[in-house]
Design a protein around this nucleic acid. Structure first.
Lengths: 340, 340
DNA sequence: CTGAAAGCGCTTACAG
DNA sequence: CTGAAAGCGCTTACAG
């Protein structure tokens, strides 16, 4: 049982239609310079034989791969899947395909791997969520290989046509205001890794509002974790074991917030009666745990779609003068209450 | 600022090395028919100029795209991400890239879209988890386009070299035995959609063990849901409102089990004291909710790696005579206990 | 509006 | 061990 895949080519169509292959090419590419009658005839033959242009041959001749990449090191699966879906939604019917490339910036040969990736794929564009979006050397490397980069980030590091901005600081500020207005004064923040800009932005917005309320941040009230469940759990376990434990914890993302839940359960501390918890991201788990988690919503799907849309608009022709920006929104659920 | 990407080609290397392009090609492809001295010289020039063969040109000449696809309609994000990572781990350093294609079998133009996908990508292989793996028409369509399909499924529908099998029935049987041995007699099963074979397999394994214990399944004790949180929540809400509510619920997957948790919380029913819950999959959320969920573990990553490995071994040369099969394992946590 | 020639960057027979 | 020719399936100038 051998694979006889005698794929039909542009030459076959040309012969059958009694035209040159160039004319077939014009029909395929919707060139206006074809007589209507000729076009009809060619289209009929194409349809009859189910002819499809060979993608790699087109790519070679056009010097475009029709491939775009999503390169990411975001540790949250939900974030990743949502963004993938959003990008693919926007790419639908464009003929562009999505190649994914998870990575780890800690790898010794990180840049070599990324270089090998562009070399092997020839992707013409890439969408980079945090924290890879903040890696200037990576973006330079990709750009030098002819890959247009769209960065999704909480800080501006590029021109408007290559940037989707999120105002993480403002989101964290809302979380702080919410807790402060409930009456909390003893608040701990479990932040993400220092290698993520969002970790700084969130802390910045949070602490500035606490300042407005005259709340001074205690020594040891800001802990660095890894944006993961396990690190959130570990930090919260330590914090909740203190004799003067806080009345509220603001976690840098939902994954860590769920780790806080676990630690609270382990210590027999009730949420929100004895401990208020706020997360960040509004991933699905936020509304699935009990009590449902108060969190800051980042519109991941909208951000992904916006990024893909930027990629679809030619960088040179682009009229984009203003930054596409997304402002997070506080979603109040049942994990926060007045302190006991 | 124009993009001057004067990429160096095989011709440049040939000229610089004073050899024919064919010789360069031989060096690139590790052909033994090159004098050691020549090879060294060519390799030096290649390294010096950072030359990388153009992927689409190679693909065209070799009639291979070096692209493989993961096509899926699995609604669980965690399953999807785990499988993607597993496949990519196995593909590392092979030069193959992963193109992802989520889909929905309910779409009116499902097959047209899938056909367009292969036509546009020319993927040489695809990995299909459930339920797309059970779609014979899809597999036929892909195969006809020269795409080798590896199916991950709970029922055998293809030859060993194209199949990764999971024994869902045995997994569900363990769950049933666990509940029965704890003393439960009034058990409800919330199953997945009828369009998923796993839904049937899990029910089959579960009910057969209940039979062994002489437990007869009540009318209305098997509910069909959609493998999602929301449908699990809806079903459980109805079940828990009955005047003779069950003492245990076996959900067809973790997502639905978490929906059961939510329904129990809403109704003020304590887990496991008043209700035992068992899931299926052991996705991360299973160990993150409270109480940690008793569930059946499917080794998703191992399955993904096995599927990728099958794809890497040539179908014709393959010595695979036996089915690669994974047996699930019951993970007992804290969501199950003796009935009150 | 249409076509013959040359080219995209690589590889596969075929020679030698 | 090495190379000149032809080919993979498409498109871009250039003519007419």
């Amino acid at each position: 049982m051998s694979i006889t895949r005698s794929k039909i080519t542009i030459n076959d169509i040309a012969r059958l239609a009694n035209v040159s292959k160039k004319t077939v090419s014009r029909v395929i590419n919707d060139s206006p310079r074809v007589r209507e009658q000729t076009r009809k005839k060619v289209q009929a033959i194409i349809a009859e034989h189910g002819y499809k242009p060979h993608p790699q041959a087109r790519a070679l001749a056009l010097r475009r791969s029709f491939l775009i990449a999503m390169i990411y090191d975001n540790p949250s699966p939900q974030y990743v899947v949502n963004m993938q879906r959003a990008i693919l939604d926007e790419l639908e019917d464009t003929g562009l395909q999505l190649v994914i490339r998870p990575c780890d910036r800690q790898d010794a040969d990180f840049y070599e791997r990324m270089q090998a990736f562009v070399d092997h794929t020839n992707v013409s564009g890439a969408i980079l969520p945090p924290s890879v979006s903040e890696d200037q050397k990576l973006v330079d490397l990709l750009t030098a290989s002819g890959c247009r980069c769209i960065r999704i980030a909480s800080v501006v590091m590029d021109e408007p046509q290559n940037t989707v901005k999120t105002d993480d600081s403002a989101g964290a500020a809302q979380a702080a205001r919410h807790l402060a207005e409930l009456g909390h004064r003893d608040i701990v923040h479990i932040r993400g890794p220092l290698t993520f800009r969002s970790s700084h932005e969130r802390w910045r917005g949070f602490s500035s509002v606490l300042g407005e309320f005259g709340i001074e941040v205690q020594e040891g009230s800001v802990l660095e974790a890894g944006y993961t469940f396990d690190t959130g759990l570990a930090c919260a376990t330590r914090v909740l074991a203190r004799k003067n434990r806080p009345t509220a914890i603001f976690a840098g993302n939902d994954e860590m917030a769920i780790g806080v839940y676990q630690a609270a359960h382990n210590a027999g501390i009730r949420i929100p009666e004895e401990l208020s918890v706020v997360g960040f991201d509004d991933t699905p788990i936020a509304s699935r745990v009990w009590p449902p988690l108060t969190t800051v919503r980042l519109p991941i799907r909208d951000m992904g779609r916006a990024a893909a849309r930027l990629l679809l608009t030619d960088a040179l022709e682009s009229r984009v003068r203003q930054y596409v920006s997304f402002r997070p929104e506080l979603i109040v659920r049942n994990s926060t209450a007045e302190p006991a």
